[in-house]
Amino acid sequence: MHPMLRRLDDLAAHLATRGDVLALLGVGSAGSEHDRLDEHSDLDFFVVVEDAAKPRYVDSIDWLQAPCPVAYSFATDQNGRKALFTDGIFVEYAIFTVDELPKIPFHGARVVWQRDDAPTDLANRGAPPSGPQYDTVEFHLNEALTNLYVGLHRELRGERLTATRFIQSYAIDRVIALLHLTSAHPHPRRDPFEPSRRVEQAYPPAVLPLAEMAPGYEHNRQAATTTLTWLEKHFTVDPVIANAIRELLSDPQ
């Protein structure tokens, strides 16, 4: 058994002795696709508790330390924490009540343990991921193009960091979305909350030239040129926005 799955089992055994816990759910790579776990994974989970118990489990880590001492932790929000066990296992977890689960976007959860009287569908109560309003080729294509346009203006203004984000991050997110919609071989394990996950395994460099699309902070023009060329090769690009992008690329400033 993978050490992280064993840690979850040990944690479940402890939580089962507490009368105010209803379930322990593995999420992320500890969820239904736990065969993805490797030495670089972190451990994500939800603890489902009775309403009155939530503040205790959010504020205290005594229960978390039952299987192994915690060396480092901090609160990430009003629901949970990140923590590092002394043996090197890194965890991110949240505490929810049964009524809160339907409001939380999650997918592919796995019941590690649940109390006999807990609802049987806890792992399936998550809200769907919130994607763009228009999940269409037209939207993602034009969003990518305008990301390049805005990013190049910011580059010319000297705002290189935000330019890098628009050109080498936001635009690439839209490219990945386009591939998901149009590829003959869609990503088999696409993360609905973070589409960039495992994208290298889904699309080889000949399909998605990430090294040229994201060459780094000092190479925004090169990145924008590559992405514009890729978009024009695969889709029908409006010449107005394409020419506007090229004008910015040719600006000597």
Rank of each mutant, 00 (worst) to 15 (best):
Y93T: 10
L101R: 00
R56Y: 06
P119D: 04
V47S: 05
L43I: 15
D173N: 14
A75P: 10
A127N: 07
L156K: 01
S73M: 04
Y93V: 12
D59G: 05
F90N: 02
L43F: 05
Y170M: 13
F96T: 05
C68D: 05
V47Q: 02
L101T: 08
R56H: 11
A52I: 05
A71G: 14
D87Y: 00
Y72C: 11
G88F: 04
T162C: 06
Q168L: 08
N142Y: 08
N142K: 09
Y57N: 06
S130Y: 01
I172T: 12
A75T: 14
E155T: 11
D77W: 04
S60M: 04
L101A: 08
I89W: 00
V91E: 07
D44C: 12
L122T: 12
T136R: 02
F46P: 05
Y72D: 08
V58H: 09
Y57G: 09
D99I: 10
G131L: 15
D87A: 06
L152A: 05
T120S: 14
Y134R: 14
K82Y: 03
G158L: 07
V111N: 06
N142E: 13
F74Q: 08
S169Y: 13
E138K: 09
H107C: 13
L152H: 04
Q114S: 13
T97I: 14
A177R: 13
Q65A: 15
A177P: 12
P67D: 03
D59P: 00
I61Y: 03
Y149P: 03
Q65K: 06
F90D: 02
N142A: 10
L122N: 05
E159T: 10
A109M: 10
T97G: 10
S130C: 08
W63I: 14
P105V: 14
Q114W: 04
T164F: 11
R81L: 13
P102V: 13
T164G: 07
Y93C: 09
T162H: 01
A52L: 10
L156T: 05
I176T: 14
L156S: 05
S130E: 12
K54D: 02
A53T: 09
V58E: 02
F74D: 08
F45R: 00
F96E: 03
Y134F: 15
L145I: 15
W63C: 09
P67R: 01
Y170H: 09
T164R: 00
D62N: 07
V91Y: 00
L145S: 06
T136N: 04
L161P: 00
T97P: 08
V47F: 09
R160N: 02
L179Q: 11
C68W: 04
P55H: 01
T146I: 15
Y149W: 14
V150Y: 06
P105S: 09
P132L: 12
D62M: 04
D77L: 07
Y170E: 11
S169T: 15
N124Y: 03
Y93S: 08
S73R: 00
V175K: 01
D116S: 13
T76D: 03
F139W: 14
R110H: 06
V91I: 15
F85H: 12
D117F: 09
